[in-house]
Design a protein around this nucleic acid. Sequence first.
DNA 1: GCATCAATCGACATCTAGATCCATTTATCC
DNA 2: GGATAAATGGATCTAGATGTCGATTGATGC
Lengths: 147, 147
Amino acid sequence: MIVSQTAEYALRAMAWLATVPRGEPIRATDLSTSTGIPPHYLSKVLRRLVLADLLVSQKGQGGGFMLARPAAEIPFIEILSAVDAYPTEGRCAFGWGTCDDAHPCPLHGVWSRLNDHIHEWASSTNLQEIADGACADERFVAPVEHE
Amino acid sequence: MIVSQTAEYALRAMAWLATVPRGEPIRATDLSTSTGIPPHYLSKVLRRLVLADLLVSQKGQGGGFMLARPAAEIPFIEILSAVDAYPTEGRCAFGWGTCDDAHPCPLHGVWSRLNDHIHEWASSTNLQEIADGACADERFVAPVEHE
DNA sequence: GCATCAATCGACATCTAGATCCATTTATCC
DNA sequence: GGATAAATGGATCTAGATGTCGATTGATGC
């Protein structure tokens, strides 16, 4: 498993929201049925995304959630950070308390090489890419099933 | 968290074993104190590595564990596969039941790009690199602390 | 053969991410 | 202002990953 379930849900929800015209709020309930994410769990994830300034929420009648910024300005790394999922900094796979570039543990080199890859990917990928690749009407049709 | 705790332990144990001269078996107990991995848990991880033909074990007096092959012939991907940790194939981050290159979900493209990176890293990195970078006497000295 | 050493195995405890439920707050519409 | 819609927040439940324990099996040396 590359990322946690929560992180995956966050990406899914954001990806979906990126495909609807910006400015029209989507209700958590609708988002839940569309994406297959359990409703109560989704609302918690959404809340964290609001706190991270990636979404804005509107309570009451006609309310819902929408992107706080244009999709092109939301890189994946911000989404992952918003739901934790993106530490690995400072942690050492070898169990050393102190492990940095100055005093690297044996795994440090290869480990940070992987980290760089992931960081690069998460920084250079943004929601607009998803929105471009996916026509909301065609490809977002009901999931066949979700396990 | 990029990989599970178990996977991290597996890498640690293998990395350590790669730094001792091949042919001399290391006891699980010793490996446990050296790496800071809980002893009984470690032995479960080791067993899985044995089943995956990455380690050989020797019972009784003078027994222990050692690499089944030269370090250079053990890529990380085999270690990760041995302790699960390496599926992501077939799973779809979007919750679609069917998601392949022919019928990709909206996240499919960027997702598999990340997968490729990780796969490339895990395949091209082997234990020899670790052994080369780490002198067993100097850099493997007692972990300062482990959380 | 017997004692000892070390891996193996199964059962059990604990901890945490994931998921659910329900009461509360805030906004909108009439 | 009252009814309704929708997000918010806390408390709780559950399953799976993590970690522990004790007993067993197999190998070695004497």
